[in-house]
Design a binder for these strands. Structure first.
Length: 607
RNA sequence: GCCUCCGUAGCUCAGCGGAUAGAGCAACCGCCUUCUAAGCGGUUGGCCACAGGUUCGAUUCCUGUCGGAGGCACCA
């Protein structure tokens, strides 16, 4: 990577200046060299604030003086550097040799799909758990942020040589009240399918869904799930098993004597529970797939109970001396490990809490050999992070192996009015039905990837739909389609297309061509930085920048000859090679974002 | 009360110690006989919430104030 080479040169200059006695620095001195593409080309191809950073350590008040010393020790015969200069308060501006810039085309063509990737983090095995929405409702628009972030972060880490797995944790534990309530709601809706009216919590009666309905309404469960999706599940269950469970359920809901055997009751309960979950999880999988996210593993919380992991981890915590009994419950001494207070591991009714299962889950993650475990949570769970980390620490895992990323929340707005979201009350805006189906996967993903996850954001679904034609994703995709179109036209016209190493690259001298090349050369650096800083939104910004440069090139540098613009064939072949390089980078970038790179987009004339 | 995050252009947001604070959208003015106008050029638009502090230098770091979102269960 170019910045690595330049950093090396600067470091060498520092030690040479030190040896020559022109710069006195402490023995243990360590500086992080930052190289950036300056905002203005006048400041060179790359710029470093090294001299400004060294100021204090070197005890020289004028940074420009330090910069001048360093410039003196930068090699004069470097194949990279054309010239260097001191500027502003003490920046070192580096101008690269044109050959080097032009030769990035060779690199791009040679590496093709791999251009931009690196192996600098090879050997790291990373698990990213994200979304993990409760199986009591559909994937909502609010989940979109974590879904996009987790997926692209996984791609980014992969591009740095890490081995990455995506995982979704399904909170399907048997002792979960929410799951129980969800299954109960489905049972009520099931009865509705067979003509039983439902008395809703707000007092109104929903008719039974058969021609001849019963008159005596069944009470909709208190704290049940009102969403329409529950009706869909009930409908499919009714279609699958028919009315076999109706009699028993009616009696139960009406509080009458039940005649079914205990065995049948268990069978029925299990059936509803399992089927309800299966349907919901399938729906979640479908929605995420429509968003372009596919997991390597769907991990069932229930499996931790079934194989005894939860019990094991509880006794392990006890053996390590991190538990005690109080008020009939078993507590974790989380306050000794950074949490604000101790937490209940096993309730007085002997059921384990969520944290017990989560401790077992994280122990399981580490036991699978991951060197680094990343959890992406919504900020509404931030109160939970300390106890999770405490439980992981209690088990003997060091804190930094578990990284919790908190995405700030998305508040939903519809036409300017706040939408209260929630599965129990309020409206659920579904990721697939309410967004993807309207504006498509690409625009949806780009939309979520535009901002940093650290910023609380407002999403107005109606506005997003209205603006979908203005979504910058199309600007980026259009630039890609344009490049493809030039290459396709070239083939039609019979123009010769040559590999970059066979064209006369020195003909590429137009500022727009060089600007574009600089940006293409910066792509690997951009990937590394985005991965390091967990900042996929950098990539969408980079994408817009690059697309802008491509469009400028398109406007200013004619590639194919025409009657009005005859041009030497050598220039055409050189530019075609450049177009191809740009095409490769843009395609790689869009793939990294999980967004399609169309080869054509039909023009929509408004007039 | 404590904790997380945020107040930057009309709107949605980048930038998070450094050079003239940026982008997209919106508004206004131009550009299709030329590789797709989902494009390009131009104009308008900013006490970077406020007040102190650290620094050669603060939108960026620290403290406080004001304003906004969310969290502090034997729920998950």
């Amino acid at each position: 990577m170019i910045t690595d080479q330049l950093t090396e040169l600067l470091l060498t200059a520092v030690s040479k200046a030190k040896e020559a006695g022109e710069l006195s620095l402490p023995e243990d001195f360590n500086v992080v060299i930052r190289l950036e593409m300056p905002p203005d080309k006048r400041f060179g191809d790359y710029s470093s604030n090294l001299a400004l950073a060294l100021k204090r350590a070197a005890n020289i008040s004028d940074s420009r003086q330090i910069a001048a010393i360093l410039c003196k020790y930068l090699p004069e015969d470097s194949p990279l550097l054309e010239k260097t200069e001191v500027a502003g308060p003490g920046f070192i501006n580096l101008y690269l040799k044109p050959d080097w810039l032009l030769d990035t085309m060779l690199l791009i063509e040679e590496q093709d799909q791999c251009y931009g990737t690196s192996v600098r983090r090879a050997g790291e095995k990373i698990l990213i758990e994200f979304v993990s929405a409760n199986p009591t409702g559909p994937i909502s628009v609010v989940n979109g942020r974590a879904a996009a972030l987790g997926d692209v972060l996984a791609n980014l880490l992969c591009s740095q040589g890490c081995e990455v797995s995506r995982e979704f944790y399904i909170n399907d534990a048997l002792n979960s009240r929410q799951i129980e309530m969800f299954a109960t709601t489905v049972q009520a809706r099931y009865l509705q399918q067979f003509g039983h009216p439902l008395l809703m919590p707000d007092g109104h009666v929903e008719a039974g869904l058969m021609e001849k309905s019963y008159t005596d309404p069944i009470s909709f469960p208190e704290n049940g799930y009102p969403g329409e999706y529950v009706v869909d599940i009930a409908r499919s269950i009714a279609a699958e098993v028919g009315d076999v469970y109706v009699d028993a359920l009616v009696k139960i809901f009406q509080g009458k004597q039940v005649t079914e055997s205990a065995e049948d009751a268990t069978k029925r309960t299990d059936y509803f529970r399992r089927t309800t979950l299966d349907r919901m999880i399938d729906a979640q999988k479908g929605a995420l797939k429509a968003f372009g996210v596919e997991y390597d593993n769907w991990f069932y919380e229930s499996s931790l109970y079934e194989n005894g992991d939860v019990e094991k981890v509880i006794s392990l915590l006890g053996e390590k001396g991190y538990t005690y009994t109080k008020d009939g419950a078993l507590w974790l001494k989380s306050s000794e490990l950074g949490d604000t207070e101790d937490r209940v591991l096993v309730r007085s009714n002997e059921k384990a809490t969520y944290i017990a299962a989560d401790a077992a889950y994280h122990a399981n993650k580490f036991s699978r050999g991951y060197t680094h475990v990343i959890d992406i949570f919504g900020a509404d769970h931030h109160g939970y992070v300390a106890r999770l980390k405490a439980s992981v620490a209690a088990l003997g895992y060091k804190g930094n192996e578990l990284e919790v990323i908190l995405t700030q929340l998305i508040s939903l707005v519809r036409d300017g009015v706040a939408v209260i979201g929630g599965k129990r009350k309020g409206v659920i805006l579904e990721l697939k039905e309410d967004l993807i189906d309207d504006i498509g996967k690409d625009a949806s993903r780009f939309y979520f990837l535009l901002n940093s996850y650290e910023t609380p954001a407002t999403v107005d679904v109606e506005l997003a739909k209205k603006q979908s034609n203005d979504n910058p994703v199309f600007y980026v995709q259009y630039a890609h389609a344009r490049l493809c179109n030039i290459l396709a036209r070239a083939e039609e016209l019979g123009a010769t297309f040559l590999p970059a190493k066979q064209v006369d690259r020195s003909l590429l001298t137009h500022p727009q061509e060089l600007d574009m090349l600089r940006k293409l050369a910066d792509y690997p650096e951009e990937l590394t930085l985005s991965a390091e800083k967990v900042a996929p939104h950098r990539l969408t910004r980079y994408a817009m920048d690059l697309a802008g440069l491509l469009n400028l090139f398109y406007e200013n540098c004619r590639v194919l000859p025409s009657k009005e613009n005859p041009q030497p064939e050598v220039l055409t072949t050189a530019r075609l090679a450049l177009v191809n390089s740009a095409r490769i980078v843009l395609r790689n970038l869009l793939t990294m974002l999980g967004i399609s790179a169309p080869e054509r987009m039909d023009r929509t004339d408004t007039l």
